[in-house]
Amino acid sequence: MTETILVIDDDADLRGLVSLALSESGYRVVEAADGPAGISAYHGHQPDLIVLDIGLGAMDGLEVCRQLRAVGTTPIVFLTSRAEEVDQLVGFAAGADDYVTKPFSPRLLVARVGSVLRRGSGAEEEKTRFEVGPLTVDTESRTATVNDVELDLTRTEFDLLTILMENPRRVITRDMLLERVWGSWYGDDHVVEVHMSRLRSKVKAAGGLRIGVAVRGVGYKLGVDSDA
């Protein structure tokens, strides 16, 4: 699928050159000459990436970037003649993904655009659903099921189960569980066993198998096993 790039720059000479270089490289290009037109084009065309000049008119590129960031995560490459580091930092703080300073080589800009697009498409999405045997956990909806029967878990029990499900073959140390579920914990370490025991009971009562197998002196592993 052809990726769409929105070029927002009030300098028609640069906009034309950037658009040509991008379209020569196979991208579909949409142009806008100022901030409001750029925001409108963003909503109308849903681009895959935005090349945005910082030095626009009344609404500058930083403000456009902030407004776009408020409504989406489309990658933004800033185009600017402000080469000073402080301006770059402001640009990144506003939500830019990369930064090209003028004067620039169109070829370099196209390469940077390609790089940012690849970074975006290659980024592994955070896994939110885990399935081990009859057990499933969905961290987005915060639901856990055994054989499609939803478990009634407390927040702590759900978090414990999620950690075990994320690492089904790994022994999770008690310290690791304390850190991830309770954060800083200065109380009785047996809190893990207490909650694990309740979780185990609920899974078993729902028709599941024994989970949260203790590994003496170390921690726990998921241990979904009909013999467990």
Binding site: D13, L17, P103
Partner: peptide, 17 residues
């Protein structure tokens, strides 16, 4: 002059930039 420097340089007019 700041704006023109960026544009002229990008168009490979380095002396003008």
């Amino acid at each position: 002059s700041h704006r023109l420097a960026g544009t002229l340089g990008t168009y490979q007019l380095t002396t003008a930039q």
